[in-house]
Simulated assay, not measured.
Amino acid sequence: MKLNKLERYVVRHPLRQWLQQRLEQPLLLGLFEHGLPVVEHALEIGCGFGQGISMIHKGFGASNVTAVDLDEEMLSYCAKRYVDVPWLTLAQADATTLPFADSSFNLVCDFAVFHHVPDWQQAVSEVFRVLRPGGSFVIEELYRAAICNPVSRRLFEHPPQNRFNHREMHDCLRLAGFEIAKSHHVLGLAGVTLAIKPVGANAIS
């Protein structure tokens, strides 16, 4: 599901980008208790206006970043923002049917995108498929309590059914084959998680 006009404004606002750089990035990097792994190929699902691309490249140290989005406007904006950047590939894609081969990436990032995906469980399975064994899935998400309340429903547009909380997200991750390395949540409203695809694991069909 694409963002509505208000959420586009919020995501693009300089304050949102400042929070992502100053608060969210250190929190996400802190999930890696034993230091960041070497990341040759990274994937961002739902690139939006491109702040996550910079975080993945500079913060996580990814040599090559592939960023996908369902919204052509977002991709067009990122293409202009990162013009002639050799380490970036942009593509239009649905999170539930990623157009990549198995075991393509060392790192996959979801920066508050899956709560917009109707079949988010299938998106988790797709991430497991495209991650290399030993690869990392970094998740920053809004949960049911944050988006399925009267205020949020009035202001924003999210799928009304099949939303999730912190525990349900983790249950789905484990069912797909992931191991939970570390996580935090805030009052059940939002959370961050580092999930690892075990070495030797194969994608679940």
Results as ranks from 00 to 15, higher is better:
A42Q: 09
R16V: 01
F128R: 10
M74H: 13
G61M: 09
L189Y: 08
H41F: 05
L43P: 01
A195I: 01
A95Y: 00
C109T: 14
P118F: 14
F128T: 04
V39D: 01
Q92A: 13
F164Q: 06
V199W: 04
H185F: 04
G30A: 07
E157Y: 01
C172W: 00
N165V: 05
R174E: 12
A93N: 08
L175Q: 15
H41T: 02
L15T: 10
R174P: 01
H170P: 01
T66N: 12
E24L: 12
A95N: 02
A91G: 09
G35W: 00
I196T: 13
G59P: 02
I53D: 00
E140C: 11
L88P: 01
D110Y: 05
G188I: 08
G135M: 06
I147G: 04
V199L: 15
A95F: 01
S103E: 14
E44N: 10
L75Y: 05
L36S: 11
P160F: 03
S205W: 02
V10G: 00
S183I: 01
E126I: 12
F100S: 07
V113T: 14
D102C: 06
E179H: 12
E126H: 07
A79Y: 04
Q161H: 11
L70H: 02
P133L: 11
F100L: 08
F60R: 04
M169S: 07
E7K: 09
A62E: 10
A42R: 08
Q122D: 11
L175E: 15
L28C: 09
G59D: 12
P198L: 12
P150V: 10
F178K: 14
V151K: 13
P150C: 10
G48M: 05
S205I: 05
V11C: 05
K2R: 10
P150F: 07
S125K: 06
R167D: 14
G200V: 06
R16Q: 13
S125Q: 10
M1V: 14
D94S: 10
H41C: 04
L28S: 07
D94L: 02
A62H: 09
A146R: 11
D110G: 07
S104W: 00
K197F: 03
N202D: 13
C148S: 14
S183C: 12
E40L: 11
G52D: 08
K182P: 02
C148A: 15
R22C: 05
I204P: 01
V65T: 11
R144H: 13
P159F: 06
S136L: 08
